[in-house]
Amino acid sequence: MSDQLIFGLYIFMLSVFVGYQIITKVPALLHTPLMSATNAISGISLVASLVIAGGKYGKLSTILGVIAVAAATINVVGGFLITDRMLKMFRRKPVKK
């Protein structure tokens, strides 16, 4: 067992715990925004794609990397925009037209 694995497992376990504590407290009212927010956040895989797309690992890696960058960027940009758009709609008082 490498140190890398043990260290990673600690991080994973603690994150799952923190996530559980937060997510159980999210009201059903906001379950759709929660889902689109976590989806936007998991667009963090963009940071891995960036290194592959811009790295010196050969043509195939560059191509795969660029597609991955595009796909992850769609989630990041679209995900944050739509979550914000949804949350903007949740109001206590109706807006007078």
Binding site: S49, L50, V69, I74, L81
Partner: peptide, 20 residues
């Protein structure tokens, strides 16, 4: 950076309509 920028642009161009 040219490939990175290309990917980021494609993603943004598709992502904005998907978000808005």
């Amino acid at each position: 950076y040219q490939w990175i920028i290309g990917g980021l642009i494609i993603g943004t161009v598709v992502g904005i309509p998907m978000g808005l």
